[in-house]
């Protein structure tokens, strides 16, 4: 049933026109945001928003829970920082290199992880990411506990100076929009429709002749690549690459952002990223309580709001009663 619903063009058309309105809204917000809030904070939210959307591409549309997405985010950040600092590459090349490194890592890890299903998939991705963490701790390339510090922002294409936050903001906003656009295109492409079919009923997708393993691997690689794009961009924003971004806590955080924002919604994870980052910034004075608050939000979301914030909005929009059981997947 869900298979037919996902493949019917009539259901996709109104959603696509609404997506355009939301894109315009995001563009408007991006134009105003740096004048209202601290630009570095906005850039941080944009990086995490893109990261969460990339993660959601895999979980929300492929039904694959990766508990180790920090590996791709953090690796890209390291590679970009190293390329910009030690090889003096221009920012666009450093970001590209970081993104490709994350994509390559995603291809290898994805090929391993899709050999097992469901709950095992989550555990494998977590274990592989922990391996990346231990390797990052030990190899000289990452600078160990110190990380890679004072990464130059450099000159875009060799002549646009990015040292001012304004200039960098424009670049980050463009990358964010491009990433978001790519994710939206993937979701609404024939490939995305097949992925939704696989998520709903894999045996049936197999019986229709789809090689589901290959589709899953492509989706995993795309998701890791886009997570890498976000991580590489973050390296330039903070001029730093450190162990925090490859730690399992970061993998948990991106799951939280997506869950809060809305699983399987195109724009929900951005709201989730904004919320989690705002909370971390303003509750920072509470120290250890931030983790506890995050844990409580996890529990509340899983028990009561499995659709997340975007899901709640969606229901208000359509004026539909909550679905029985509230399971959005």
């Amino acid at each position: 049933m869900s298979l037919d619903a996902a493949l019917s063009p009539s259901a996709a058309a109104p959603a696509a026109s609404r997506d355009w309105k939301i894109f315009l809204l995001i563009f408007a917000i991006l134009c105003v945001a740096p004048f209202v809030a601290y630009p570095v904070f906005v850039m941080k939210v944009l990086c995490f928003g893109l990261f969460a959307c990339a993660f959601n591409l895999l979980l929300g549309y492929g039904g694959l829970l990766s508990f180790g997405h920090a590996a791709y985010f953090g690796t890209a950040r390291y590679v970009c920082a190293y390329a910009a600092k030690s090889w003096h590459l221009t920012p666009e090349l450093a970001i590209l290199l970081g993104t490709l490194a994350a994509g390559a890592l995603g291809l290898v890890f994805g090929a391993l992880a899709i050999r097992r299903q469901g709950i095992y998939f989550a555990m494998i991705t977590l274990a592989l990411a922990q391996m990346v963490y231990f390797v990052s701790l030990q190899v000289p390339f990452t600078g160990g506990e110190d990380g890679i510090q004072s990464v130059p922002r450099g000159r875009l294409f060799g002549f646009i100076d990015l040292s001012s936050d304004r200039a960098l903001y424009v670049l980050v906003a463009v990358i964010f929009l491009a990433g978001l656009f790519a994710i939206n295109r993937i979701i609404h492409s024939p490939f995305g429709q097949v992925m939704k079919a696989i998520r709903e009923n894999e045996p049936r997708a197999v019986s229709l002749g789809y090689r589901t393993e290959r589709f899953k691997l492509i989706l995993f690689t795309l998701s890791a690549t886009l997570a890498g794009l976000a991580g590489a961009t973050k390296a330039l924003v903070f001029q730093l690459a450190s162990l925090t971004d490859v730690h399992w806590a970061m993998s948990g955080e991106v799951v939280l952002m997506t869950l809060v924002g809305g699983l399987g919604t195109v724009f929900g994870p951005i709201i989730g990223a904004l919320l989690v980052e705002t909370m971390e910034t303003y509750l920072a004075s509470l120290g250890g309580w931030v983790t506890i608050v995050e844990g409580v939000i996890f529990v509340i979301c899983v028990l009561l709001f499995r659709d997340g914030i975007a899901g709640v909005f969606d229901r208000l929009w359509k004026r539909q009663p909550p679905r029985a059981g509230g399971n959005s997947r």
């Binding site: 469901g118 120290g287 844990g295 996890f298 499995r306 399971n327």
Partner: peptide, 26 residues
Amino acid sequence: LYQLDPLYGLLLTFGLALIIQGLFRN
């Protein structure tokens, strides 16, 4: 959560682990 996808159990217990570890650390 027994009627739901087992992934929700993983997410719930992850949240609980954050709470417990955070409380003990404080």
